[in-house]
Amino acid sequence: MLRIVLFVLTNLAVMLLLTIVVKLTGIDVYTQREGGINLQGLLIMSAVMGMGGSFISLAMSKWIAKRSVGAEVITQPRNESEAWLLDTVRRQAEQAGIGMPEVAVYEGPEMNAFATGMSKNNSLVAVSTGLLQSMDRAQVEAVLGHEVSHIANGDMVTMTLIQGVLNTFVIFFARVLGTVIDRAISGNRDGGNGFAYFAIVIALQIGLGFLASLIVMWFSRWREFRADAGGAHLAGRQKMISALERLAGNHGESTLPKAIQAFGISGEGGIARLLMSHPPIPERVAALRAAA
């Protein structure tokens, strides 16, 4: 429950901040002109809201992730297992040519891990206690390689750019179509936007947002194949295959919040393939075997 509240409050705070920015800069004034919509002004406002929200979320991603799952960053290893985790991530980061990520462990019964952060040199790799308890070190090494590959590939930034662009067009087209539909229904082309307009815009944003999510999930699935290949390169192909096969038995519900589930190694989340953030594990294993 705490994770849901934190997620909702964070998103509300981001939207409130962007709304204040739009109001203070007067961008919203330029979205309307006499007799119609100022498309250029509306596009600028949509970009501020869409791209701004995505990049603020990216900048806060490590902070949100740590507090959402209660991850404890390893600063001084308390035991041999933590020392091994740090050494493994450090070696893989050097191989991948990125800065040393923060390494954290969080309490979670499922086998999972995730990477997040604003850049290749400012990132976090976190693993669940369930993964450490259920996998041998060869498999954990492959999982770490998978997450380090996400960072090296710049997946967090690319995902943010895609999400930001899509958010921009969702906001833009929802308002353009909302205005057209509202005026067609009311028959008042010169009238101001009323309650019906805002209801239409909200409905359109939900519908267009769903279509946009299909594109985001497609990219998420594609980058998982690429991260698997990176994990195979850093740790060994057979280790990566073994880790994925072990993950196939991961039936526990993910404790990761929705905001970072797509960054985990596990979790095919979705009721249909188009809504999955991860490809089915048999397909990922088949891709690795085919590449060999």
Rank of each mutant, 00 (worst) to 15 (best):
Q205C: 13
S119T: 08
V105D: 06
P109L: 10
H233C: 03
V73L: 10
K66V: 15
G231K: 11
A93C: 00
L42R: 11
I171G: 01
L144E: 05
H278V: 01
R183V: 01
G145Q: 09
V8P: 00
E72I: 14
M1Y: 13
M45I: 07
E245N: 08
P280A: 05
G252E: 12
Q261R: 15
A227S: 12
F169P: 01
R67I: 05
G178K: 11
Q139F: 09
M100A: 02
F198C: 00
N167G: 15
S213C: 03
A196F: 14
G194D: 11
M51W: 14
A212K: 08
L85P: 01
S123F: 03
Q133P: 00
S149V: 08
L161I: 14
M49C: 08
K239G: 03
A83S: 12
T255V: 15
F263S: 12
G70Y: 04
G36Q: 07
L256W: 01
F173W: 14
I64R: 12
T179Y: 09
M156L: 14
V21P: 03
V165H: 10
P282A: 05
P77C: 13
A212Q: 07
A83Q: 12
N122I: 00
L39T: 11
M49V: 13
R237Q: 12
G145E: 02
G52A: 13
M159K: 14
V285A: 03
M240S: 06
A184L: 09
A232C: 04
V5S: 06
Q238L: 05
H146F: 10
R90K: 13
L18C: 08
A232Y: 00
G252M: 10
V29I: 14
A286F: 08
V105Y: 10
R226L: 11
I271N: 12
M49G: 05
A235W: 07
S149P: 01
A196W: 14
I181P: 02
L39Q: 09
N193Q: 15
R67W: 12
K120N: 02
L234T: 03
R289K: 15
Q133W: 05
E110S: 10
E245Y: 03
W84K: 15
G108Y: 05
K258R: 12
P257Q: 07
W63R: 10
S186L: 08
E110Q: 11
D182H: 14
R237D: 05
V48L: 11
P279H: 07
G231D: 10
R221E: 04
E253P: 03
L208Q: 09
L124A: 04
P257D: 04
T179P: 00
G264Y: 08
G108S: 13
S123Y: 02
E253C: 00
A292C: 08
V127Y: 03
Q139E: 13
I98T: 04
G41E: 06
G194Y: 13
N188S: 11
T158R: 15
R175W: 10
M156A: 15
A291F: 09
D190N: 14
R284H: 05
M60L: 15
P109S: 14
L288Y: 09
D155E: 13
I56Y: 07
I281H: 01
G108C: 04
L9Q: 06
V125W: 01
I44Q: 06
A235G: 07
A152H: 09
T88L: 03
L244G: 04
L144K: 06
I56E: 02
R3I: 09
H233W: 04
N250A: 12
K62A: 03
E80T: 13
R223A: 03
G192E: 11
V69F: 04
E141I: 00
R273D: 05
V69Y: 04
V157R: 11
I20P: 01
